[in-house]
């Protein structure tokens, strides 16, 4: 365990044992307009969903609001509006995106709404999995695994030129596993002498990040959006929950993250100038 790591394995296990119930159950990375109704303000507060499940969603809004005052939410879903009783569960500021993310739990289930959400989650997950199937770094995944990934991910938009994470920095949002859904991402690695090298350029279907989760090390490279990018994000909380509830999937993800990183490292090293026949010893 290095001094720069974020969590010891023991802490990881205890965190896993208390993983938030809110991240259990399938959800989909989906962006729908949402109106939030709260006691604190007269009209609705505009927001948009980042992920949506049967029992709740994550919404992005430009301003904060009092979690306790949230009463209802209206989702603009394909096929019409849906009004749900809503409760605020958690809230945080996503610095890189300049937005507030709020976890919203739905109130008492109505069978009709459940059926509609069920169809939406299952169909959208299937569509997303189909998009990833056989594409980029997702080639090695089976259909079940892809569905598992799609049902565990959240959408993240990144503006052109914005950093997704920086090498060696464990800031919030920098430790997730990402799959490029739309747009392209550049990876750069800075060598010990400070000189940067292009690591890879990623198109839809390519996987990156996640080494902090998988190897308990800070990000070994930096990632920046080359244009408007949409990412599927598997957050640390979700990964920890997967490790308990779907260990096989967590292992597949770990394997993929390490394999992809290893492949990029090998490709970068292969571009290193050949110095002729000799042997050097480094310490």
């Amino acid at each position: 365990m290095t001094a720069t790591t974020q969590a010891s394995p023991d802490r990881l296990i205890s965190k896993r044992a208390t993983a938030r119930p809110g991240v259990r159950g399938p959800r989909i990375a989906a962006q729908y307009p949402v109106e939030l109704y709260s006691e604190g303000f007269d009209g609705p507060l505009s927001a948009r969903s980042r992920d949506l499940g049967l029992r709740g969603m994550c919404v992005e809004s430009r301003s904060m609001f009092a979690l306790r005052s949230l009463k209802q939410a209206v989702l603009q879903l394909p096929g019409g509006r849906m009004l749900v009783e809503a409760q605020g569960v958690w809230q945080r500021f996503a610095k890189q995106e300049g937005a507030f993310l709020t976890g919203v739990s739905f109130g008492a289930e109505r069978q009709r709404d459940t059926a509609r959400l069920w169809d939406l989650v299952v169909d959208h997950g299937s569509k997303l999995a189909r998009f990833l199937y056989g594409r980029g770094d997702c080639k090695g995944f089976g259909i079940e695994e892809l569905l598992g990934i799609c049902h565990a991910s959240r959408l993240r938009h990144v503006a052109p030129g914005e950093w997704i994470y920086h090498q060696s920095s464990l800031e919030a949002g920098a430790t997730s596993i990402f799959v490029v859904w739309k747009g392209s991402v550049a990876l750069r690695v800075e060598a010990a002498d400070g000189r940067p090298a292009a690591f890879d350029r990623l198109e839809p279907g390519r996987l990156f990040g996640g080494m902090p989760l998988v190897a308990d090390v800070p990000p070994p490279e930096s990632a920046v959006a080359k244009d408007a990018v949409a990412l599927l994000e598997i957050t640390p909380a979700v990964f920890e929950t997967l490790s308990m509830t779907k260990p096989w999937l967590a292992q597949c993800l770990s394997e993929a993250v390490t394999r992809v990183y290893g492949g990029r490292a090998s490709a970068l090293l292969a571009r290193t100038p050949y110095a002729g026949a000799h042997t050097t010893v480094t310490r």
Binding site: A191, A192, D193, R195, L268, L269, T272, P273, T282
Partner: peptide, 10 residues
Amino acid sequence: QLLAVAARRR
């Protein structure tokens, strides 16, 4: 470690 070695060659 390897990238550090490689960087010295560039």
